[in-house]
Design a protein around this nucleic acid. Structure first.
Length: 688
DNA sequence: CGTTATTGCCC
DNA sequence: GTACGGGCAATAACGT
């Protein structure tokens, strides 16, 4: 569409009761502009633009009448409303009192369409418009440019950072119209392609938008007081470690660069997080000879590798810089999550007992320091700073709600990602999980697909031997095969090794990495041993090689490989070994997504039914997802009805070479005390 | 104030 | 003959 035509505003023929345009177009691209990205901390929309296939377009500021116009648009089942990232816009509109969960118009999303068409690369509107529409970014960047240019002056004048709503309205308008025009054209290009390739998957993703908004708006409950207690504890420990470190290695002479010139400095306080400058200096000073270097990491999007070649101080290297007894202390403390005091006592005791050189205390202290500072900055601080609606409980504790951002279109395999804060990487053993608590009168039920990636692996390989073992103990069964022993004679360590091999195979590893990974987990394994295990594995499970090759053949033939839901993976042929993993991970992810939609829909349908029958609605909700796990919040009185129903929906979702089964655990007090249903006296619960 | 490198947590 | 998959986030260091 030529830019000149675009700039000619076409007046709608008719006006509604508020004097606003009644659109003839059926397809309406809509885009809201906001004061920020996080509505839970005050960001709000202040205007929006629209563009229809009839060439009608317009720009509206937020007023009651204009919001009513949007509500009427949403109530019209003959319309299709297209967003680029519908989740964001709808979430913002939900904060203006729009009931986004009962929209009668059809909601579409070009971000999801683009992601499904090609999981690689960028999916922002700017990039897509250039790539698919040959469109000049034009007005797209003007708002950002304005903000950059006027930031300093604005802060000086108003005492705060400027946002989109502070830019001149005509600049915002131009951008907004640019966005909606692009969105509409993009939709016209992408929708037919997806209709051809994965219509049902798109439908799942599309409906999932509402599940995600619901989940994010509801949020998870946190015990802010507990976070503060744990934070204080950690800070105390950190102060002690810092003092010890300073006593051992300061003053420390270091060399660093400043404006291209090398300078020398003497430090009175040591920073254990400084792995490139202070750590090497400290190790040299106490006389530890450095032996391990960092490995190159693959650059963004499979490009050349970057970095590497510097001295390494990760845990892998650190345990190797100390004697064996101390190394086991470090490993044990990590696995069991010891408190700092116990760790200190054990470390000192061990050094004395084995008459180790005094400097060996350095690596364990640094590891502990890094662990604690990570807990504080990444977890406790986040909970304390980001919890909203904080109030006191009768017991005098501060509790609040954390609203995490779930992104359904970020990970290339199809998985969810989470951010701000990332609820999907909360440590399993250390303190943070103590801060997550159910709401009053609720339990949190964690329903997780048991070994789902392993099951998908089994599905693709169509391996009968594996299929027979998957509902018992797959790792034990694999151990029996690769060690050629019966179950009774397999040691715990051998089973653990087999487990590592199972994961390694799914991840596409070879002998070298397998050895490294196993050794890292405390199972000392040489490269040769690992090679033997892998060879043995492939001999016993030839289907794995077969399916890996089959995927490579398909990649070569079609340029992509599609999972059972039609999600396509485009990868360079050099990394064809990744396909098996993508297929396992991605199929699991799509199972999860479909399950979330089905569970959510069941709960809504049930409530409509109950409303008709004059019964009170169910209070059960989906509150979060962690890859293979859906977490439901439910009043105990509903558990018996709802939980088995949710499990049934999840398990009966689709049919594969092996059944997909669901395990259930429940949190009544704190996430750290997640329990089996039987342990909390759920007599009605029957494990599947 | 941006980018790169390192580290470490999750499934 | 090679190679472990997918995420998010914090800090340090350095140059603009």
């Amino acid at each position: 569409m030529p830019a000149t035509a675009m700039q000619r505003e076409r007046r709608a023929r008719t006006e509604d009761e508020d004097g606003l345009p009644v659109l003839r177009g059926k397809y309406i691209a809509l885009d809201v502009e906001t004061t920020g990205l996080d509505p839970y901390h005050g960001a709000r929309l202040f205007c929006w633009g629209y563009y229809t296939e009839e060439g009608e377009w317009g720009f509206m500021r937020k007023t009651d009448a204009n919001l009513r116009w949007v509500a009427r648009l949403f109530a019209d089942p003959s319309k299709t409303i297209i967003f680029h990232n519908a989740k964001f816009d709808l979430k913002m509109l939900s904060f203006e009192g729009i009931d986004v969960f009962n929209i009668l118009a059809r909601v579409e999303c070009t971000l999801i369409l683009s992601k499904l068409w090609n999981e690689n690369g960028q999916h922002n509107l700017r990039y897509l418009s250039i790539r698919y529409l040959n469109r000049d970014p034009g007005a797209k960047d003007e708002v950002e440019d304005w903000l950059k240019k006027h930031k300093r002056a604005f802060v000086k004048k108003h005492g705060r950072e400027p946002n989109f709503s502070d830019a001149p309205i005509h600049v915002v308008k131009r951008r907004c119209i640019w966005d909606v025009e692009s969105t509409l054209m993009l939709y016209a290009q992408l929708r037919p392609r997806i209709a051809q390739t994965c219509k049902e998957l798109y439908e799942t993703e599309r409906q999932l938008i509402f599940v995600v908004i619901d989940m994010e708006n509801h949020g998870v409950r946190v015990d802010v007081t507990r976070a503060k207690e744990l934070r204080a504890e950690a800070l105390d420990d950190l102060a002690q470690i810092q003092a010890d470190l300073n006593r051992i290695i300061c003053p420390l002479v270091i060399e660093r660069k400043k404006k291209g010139k090398g300078i020398t400095e003497t430090l009175e306080s040591f920073n254990a997080n400084s792995s490139s400058i202070q750590l090497p200096a400290a190790f040299k000073k106490v006389g530890i000879e450095l032996r391990y270097k960092t490995k190159p990491k693959k650059g963004r999007k499979g490009s050349a590798k970057t970095g590497g070649g510097n001295w390494s101080f990760d845990e892998y290297a650190m345990v190797r810089y100390v004697s064996k007894p101390l190394a086991s202390i470090i490993r044990d403390s990590g696995e069991e999550g010891w408190k700092t005091k116990r760790f200190y006592d054990e470390v000192k005791k061990t050094i004395k007992k084995h008459k180790l050189p005094a400097y060996e205390i350095l690596p364990p202290l640094i590891l502990k320091y890094r662990e604690l500072s990570k807990m504080v900055t990444t977890y406790y601080d986040h909970i304390i700073e980001n919890a909203v609606d904080v109030h006191k409980t009768p017991a005098g504790r501060d509790v609040g709600i954390l609203h995490c951002n779930f992104n359904q279109s970020e990970a290339m395999t199809g998985r969810f990602s989470a951010s701000h804060p990332n609820l999907q990487n909360i440590p399993r053993i250390l303190g943070p999980r103590e801060c997550f608590i159910p709401r009053v009168g609720r339990h949190n039920w964690h329903l997780d697909y048991a070994q789902v990636e392993m099951r998908m692996f089994c599905h693709f390989a169509q391996d009968k031997k594996m299929a027979a073992a998957i509902d018992k103990d797959i790792h034990l069964a694999v151990a029996c095969e690769i060690y050629e022993k019966d179950e009774a004679s397999i040691t715990k360590e051998q089973r653990k090794r087999a487990k590592g091999v199972n994961f390694g195979i799914i991840y596409g590893s070879g002998a070298a990495t397998m050895a490294e990974t196993l050794t890292k987990k405390g199972l000392h394994t040489s490269k040769l041993e690992a090679a033997t295990l892998v060879a043995s594995y492939h001999r016993k499970f030839p289907s794995v090689r077969r399916i890996t090759n089959e995927f490579k053949v398909r990649l070569h033939r079609d340029g992509y490989v599609a999972n059972p839901f039609g999600r396509r993976y485009h990868v360079p042929t050099q990394v064809g070994y990744k396909l098996l993993n993508y297929m396992c991970q991605g199929t699991s992810a799509d199972i999860m997504k479909k399950a979330m939609v089905e569970c959510w829909k069941w709960l809504r349908a049930e409530n409509r039914k109950r409303k008709k029958q004059g019964k009170r609605p169910l209070k059960t909700r989906i509150i979060k997802t962690i890859h293979d796990e859906i977490v439901f919040e439910t009043p105990p009185i509903e558990e018996r009805l709802v939980i088995p129903q949710m499990m049934k929906i999840m398990e009966d979702l689709d049919s594969f070479f092996v059944p997909i089964t669901v395990d259930a655990e429940v949190v009544t007090k704190r996430w750290s005390q997640k329990k089996k249903p039987q342990e909390v006296g759920c007599k009605w619960f029957k494990a599947s």
